[in-house]
Design a protein around this nucleic acid. Structure first.
Lengths: 205, 205
DNA sequence: TACTGACTTTTTAAATTAATTAGTCAAAAG
DNA sequence: CTTTTGACTAATTAATTTAAAAAGTCAGTA
């Protein structure tokens, strides 16, 4: 019963931490600041989360769970492969924009994100994404839109390429503290171009 | 006339510098070491290259020119699109392995590679690569292997994706000081999978 | 159980110093 | 006139210390 209250408090903490993480980045957010935002003592904060890493992990879980949920919802209501994938691309870009400062799973992160657990979380999410995509592809294949193909390899390469385009644009081509809107537009265009060719390659002839 | 001699000396210096750059990286190579390798005084070295950046730039030119040449040769003797691209992928991976420690154009580089000129050089190379690929695609299109398509956008996306797969594997997925052979194999496999789908998407129906 | 103030320990940041490296130059050698 | 050098200075980087900030603990309160 009181567990409900504790969970609610935890959620409040996560929400507050997320605000600072998203805006200032994880390294530039202190536990004291989070506690102050909640009019709480730091000691109380540590009552709910034993250390900073566990809080980061909880925040990571929170946003990534939402991220995957969004993808799932979009793919479920997609009428065909291409529009489904277009929406997926948009979700990915919006997510990347929103949480850019957290540098989740882009290899650029603050020291915190070198943490084993965080890395593991990202692996999980990547796998979930791929499972979602595999299911979607299988469905579209059964509906006759896609030809017979190796769904595992194809979905794998698809997600890899989407991430690759992102990383290349943000961390190689125009490395800046905060990416410009143009960069995100470039990524979007490239992903859509890629999708276009890819689609022709996997659609039923 | 003596210019020949000077040029020869310069080439010697470039070759010597390259050895150290490739093995230890640019930042961990001093001008003194390069001079010593050549049994030359540092002052003499500076007679040929006014500063370290110009030497780095010369080395960069040297290997990248060779890189593009190799690509050109491969594409020229390619009998069809797919094998041509497979060879291209292999060249890229071999190049990446060989000069990994120099971190050329991977956004991870030593401070030196943040230099404007180096960045510009990389842009040049990327453009040359794309021109090569465009010419190749046009040729394969005229030979009837590829369907009608936007060659500019397609070649662009192709090179972006190849680089993206590289960066993702090396700098996001398994960031290590020296990448393992497995990582390179992964990249190769992913690039080939990608090519497979891509090819189906752009070949003549 | 939920919370706190006052504490200790660990990490980071700033300041200082030492060492290394980049880069210069007048003069010598071929 | 081109190439080379030793002996120099200037600029960077590394190592060391010191100060500050942040993480994390705990006895005690409501």
């Amino acid at each position: 019963m009181t567990e409900q209250i504790t969970d609610y408090k935890k959620e409040q903490i996560i929400a507050t931490a997320l605000k600072r993480f998203a805006h200032f980045g994880i390294a530039k957010t202190t536990m004291n600041e989070i506690a102050d935002d909640l009019s709480l003592s730091k000691a109380s904060l540590y009552y709910y989360f034993p250390d900073k890493t566990s809080l980061i992990l909880a925040v990571g879980h929170y946003i990534l769970f939402d991220f995957v949920k969004q993808q799932e919802a979009t793919l479920n209501k997609a009428l065909n492969f291409k529009t489904g994938m277009q929406n997926l691309i948009d979700i990915r870009i919006e997510f990347g924009k929103k949480y850019f400062m957290m540098h989740i799973g882009d290899g650029q992160g603050d020291s915190y994100f070198h943490d084993q657990q965080l890395h593991h979380l990202m692996e999980d999410v990547r796998q979930q994404e791929q499972l979602l995509l595999m299911a979607f592809m299988k469905k579209m294949q059964q509906q006759g839109e896609l030809k017979a193909l190796d769904i595992v390899a194809t979905s794998q390469i698809f997600t890899d390429v989407l991430t690759g385009i992102w990383v290349f644009e943000i961390h190689v081509l125009h490395k800046t503290l905060i990416p410009s809107e143009d960069q995100f537009n470039n990524i979007r265009t490239k992903c859509l171009n890629m999708l276009h060719i890819f689609y022709d390659g996997i659609k039923r002839a």
